[in-house]
Amino acid sequence: MELRGVRTKLGEFLLGPIDLTVEGGYLVVMGPNGAGKTTLLKVIAGILKAEGSITLDGVEISRLPPEKRNIAYVPQSYALFDNMTVYANIEFGLRMRGIPREERRKAVAEIADRLGIKELLQRTPRQLSGGQRQRVALARALVVRPRLLLLDEPMAGLDPDIKETALPLLRSLPQEYGIPVVHVTHDRDEAYSLGDLVAVMYRGRIVEMGEVEEIFAEPRHAVTARLVGFQILRLEGRCFGVRPEDVVVGSGRIRGRIVQTLRSARGVKILLDIDGQQIWAYADSGRLGDDVEVGLARLVPLEC
């Protein structure tokens, strides 16, 4: 998939211009609330109209209606039909495409078996757990054999134990079904576990894109740094990112004051005030109000 000069306006919000190439694998799109992540997915799916060019497998699709693009879009709500059985939900897209009944039956049975929901086919969505609803939504999307799968916050609202079982399933989709996946989230752990590539959006634009290890270890933009767990610190007129675990309390050339303490699994979590800037660190102990020496084991230069 390739996007060139894609833009649209919704009220006062402007998306784009967006230039983006996805050659395969798993792309995670991150960004703060209101960055335009869901809007981007809807533009790719054809739900929202936009200027610019979108090509998929070398075919220009930007003027095609959603049903002609062969793109599967799973919204955050999953958008299942509560008055229909799981079987009917999964079958729906095939029926709309005029696929013969016996072929539909085989396709539904196969995808339900692969996603472990065969025993749920005669239930309704209201009778399912969050994780089961997620799998039904994926089955409905994948059964039509799309050329691209778009997932909008598919893990939102799931319990932690269900997320743990869902992650391997989602990660396997590009390899097992041979299609690229574009997955929207603001959860950094989810992004790190799933992504081959990460694109970071801010105020309707993509500000940074790269391989997941690169983005998490060496972000270039302050927005990206915050999303992947860095804190922002200005020193000598420059902007840097530093992780809490790289702040050394008790030695160093910087002076700071402890303004808050919290218990954590790693010891005491300390909020330090350094020249009016506040950053978190870990330490064996610390008392509110103490002045301490602070060292910074690793700093990442940023564009702020």
Rank of each mutant, 00 (worst) to 15 (best):
D161V: 14
P174K: 02
V212I: 10
K9I: 04
G5Y: 10
A88Y: 10
E60D: 15
E102D: 14
V200G: 05
V184T: 03
R126L: 12
P168F: 04
L48Y: 13
V228W: 03
G286P: 01
Q76F: 10
K49H: 10
I232M: 06
G52V: 06
D57C: 11
R63T: 15
H221I: 12
P66T: 11
C304E: 11
R133F: 01
R123A: 05
G276K: 15
N70I: 11
F81H: 04
E12L: 03
L302W: 12
R147P: 06
Y192G: 01
M84I: 02
L288K: 00
K118G: 06
L235P: 10
S53Y: 09
K9W: 00
A281H: 01
Q132P: 08
A88M: 10
L288H: 00
Q122I: 09
E293T: 05
R123F: 04
R220H: 10
R63P: 14
P154Y: 09
G237I: 09
L15V: 03
A297P: 07
L138S: 06
A199M: 02
R140D: 04
M201S: 07
P301M: 12
H186C: 02
F230Q: 00
V6N: 08
R188L: 05
E2F: 09
A156G: 07
G276A: 15
R171N: 05
G16P: 10
K106P: 09
P75N: 10
L14C: 03
G289M: 00
A109C: 12
R238F: 15
V28I: 06
Q231S: 05
P125S: 02
P32F: 07
Q76V: 10
I179P: 07
G241W: 09
L167K: 05
K163R: 15
L272Q: 09
V43L: 01
F92W: 13
F13S: 03
D284F: 02
I179T: 07
Y87W: 14
Q132G: 07
F216T: 06
V212K: 11
L233M: 10
A199G: 02
V6W: 07
V144S: 13
Y177G: 04
R105H: 15
D275P: 12
G289R: 00
R238S: 15
V28T: 06
G46W: 11
L194T: 02
Y78W: 08
Y78L: 11
N70M: 14
P244L: 03
R205K: 15
V228A: 07
I232Q: 03
V259D: 08
N70R: 14
A265S: 13
H186S: 08
A281Q: 03
G11E: 07
A139L: 05
S264M: 10
V59L: 12
I274V: 15
